[in-house]
Computed example of a mutant assay.
Amino acid sequence: MSFIHHFIDQLSELTGRVLAWLSLLMMVLLCLVVILRYGFEIGSIGLQEGVTYLHASIFMLGAAYTLKHDGHVRVDIFYRNFSPRSKAWINSLGGIIFLLPLCVYIFFISWDFVLQSWAIGEVSTEPGGIPAVFLLKSLIPIMAINLGLQALADILRSALVLVEAAND
Rank of each mutant, 00 (worst) to 15 (best):
I8M: 05
E49A: 01
F108T: 07
W118R: 08
F108L: 13
A63N: 04
F40T: 03
R74H: 15
V34E: 08
V33K: 10
F59Y: 15
I90N: 02
K137N: 09
I97A: 15
I42R: 10
S138D: 06
V34L: 04
I142S: 11
G16F: 05
G148L: 05
C31S: 11
G46Y: 03
R157D: 04
P84L: 05
S2G: 12
S138P: 03
M1D: 10
Y79N: 04
N167F: 07
W89Y: 08
A119N: 11
K68H: 12
L47S: 01
A144S: 12
A166I: 03
I106C: 09
C103P: 03
W21Q: 09
A165V: 02
Y65G: 00
L135T: 01
F107K: 06
S138M: 04
S86V: 15
E126Q: 13
W21G: 12
F7A: 14
W89T: 07
G50D: 07
G148I: 08
P84S: 00
A165C: 02
S83T: 07
A20Y: 13
G94L: 03
R74A: 15
A63L: 10
L25C: 02
L102Q: 10
V133T: 12
I42D: 12
D70Q: 07
L54H: 01
A132Y: 08
S83Y: 01
L152K: 04
L99I: 15
I155C: 03
D112A: 07
I130D: 01
C103M: 13
E126T: 08
I58Q: 10
E122G: 02
Y65R: 00
I4A: 13
L152A: 10
A119S: 13
V104P: 05
K87S: 04
M26F: 03
L115Y: 08
N167R: 06
L102T: 15
A64F: 02
I35G: 00
I77S: 11
K87N: 08
F98L: 15
G16W: 07
A64W: 07
V28L: 14
V51H: 00
W118A: 06
F82H: 00
I58H: 09
L156E: 02
G50F: 03
F98R: 11
G128R: 05
S2R: 06
L99D: 02
S86R: 06
V123Q: 12
K68D: 06
H72W: 00
S86E: 13
I96T: 01
F78P: 05
M1L: 07
N146T: 14
I140H: 05
G95L: 02
I140S: 07
I35A: 13
V28G: 09
M143Q: 13
G46F: 00
I120M: 10
H55N: 11
I120A: 06
L139I: 10
I140G: 03
L162P: 00
T52F: 14
L36A: 09
L19P: 03
V73H: 05
V51I: 02
Q10S: 13
V163A: 05
T52L: 15
L19M: 09
G121Q: 13
R157Y: 06
A56L: 06
D168F: 08
F107L: 10
M27C: 11
G50T: 07
V133I: 15
L93T: 08
